[in-house]
Amino acid sequence: MALQHTGGVDSATSRRAGLEDAGAIADLMIRSRRAAIGAIPAAVHPDGDTLMWITTTVVPEREVWLMEDVDSRPLAVLVLDGDWVDQLYVDPAFTGKGLGSRLIELAKARRPAGLQLWTFSTNAGAQRFYLRHGFVVAGTTNGSANEENAPAIRFAWTAP
């Protein structure tokens, strides 16, 4: 069942996430991954493991940002790990409305020396998105080093 969100994405705000947000972050990431199957491989971990990973590793050890509607419900999530965009997911009902762009601009502001990230070779939409935001292809793999065993592309961004 999809969540109902009030207010437009123009009124969405960003904030740092805390441990109290772990369940909402996990839900958003799980729903977003499921909606993207075909463009990306299916998740290899059960939902409960995803929640545990977000609770024990992601939120305590990484920089996590949420975009929220006026009712404080998450619309998108960004996870930064050093100079890596570790995760970027937008609620499937709100893709293409600028939330991901706002989070990438936030990431650039937080990491002005540069960013890098991986995306699956099959995810043409993500590739167009990152190229549009000034990222360039910095390498490719055959997928043997990721859990999904899926070919991937490393993108990098450096400030002009």
Rank of each mutant, 00 (worst) to 15 (best):
D91Q: 06
S144A: 15
A145V: 13
I54D: 05
L78F: 00
S14M: 15
D83C: 02
L103N: 06
G8L: 13
A36T: 02
N146Q: 14
S121C: 08
L3R: 15
W84F: 15
T13N: 08
T55E: 09
M67Q: 09
V90W: 04
R62C: 04
A36D: 09
A39R: 11
P74A: 11
L66V: 14
A113P: 04
R110E: 00
V70N: 04
A145T: 12
D49F: 02
I37H: 01
A113F: 06
G125V: 07
V9W: 03
A2P: 15
G96Q: 10
D69T: 01
E68F: 05
T141R: 14
Q4P: 02
Q87P: 00
A150K: 13
T140L: 09
P160Q: 13
A126C: 02
Y130K: 08
H133N: 08
Q127W: 14
L115V: 05
T6L: 15
W84S: 12
V79G: 05
G125N: 03
G98P: 08
Y89R: 01
T57F: 05
G143H: 12
F155R: 11
N149V: 03
A35Q: 06
Y130G: 07
A24P: 08
A109L: 12
L106K: 10
F129I: 11
L117P: 04
R34Q: 13
E105N: 03
P74K: 03
A113M: 13
D91A: 07
G143L: 12
A107W: 01
G48Y: 14
V9N: 07
H133S: 03
F129R: 06
T13Q: 10
V70P: 05
M29C: 10
E105C: 02
V77P: 09
L99H: 03
L106A: 10
W84Q: 15
I30L: 11
I40Q: 06
T95V: 14
R154N: 08
R132G: 03
G96M: 07
A35S: 12
D47Y: 09
Y89Q: 01
G18R: 11
R62M: 05
A17W: 01
A150W: 11
R132Y: 02
S32D: 07
E63V: 01
L28W: 02
A152Y: 09
I40V: 11
A159S: 03
V77C: 14
A35H: 09
M29T: 02
R132M: 10
A35F: 06
V77D: 07
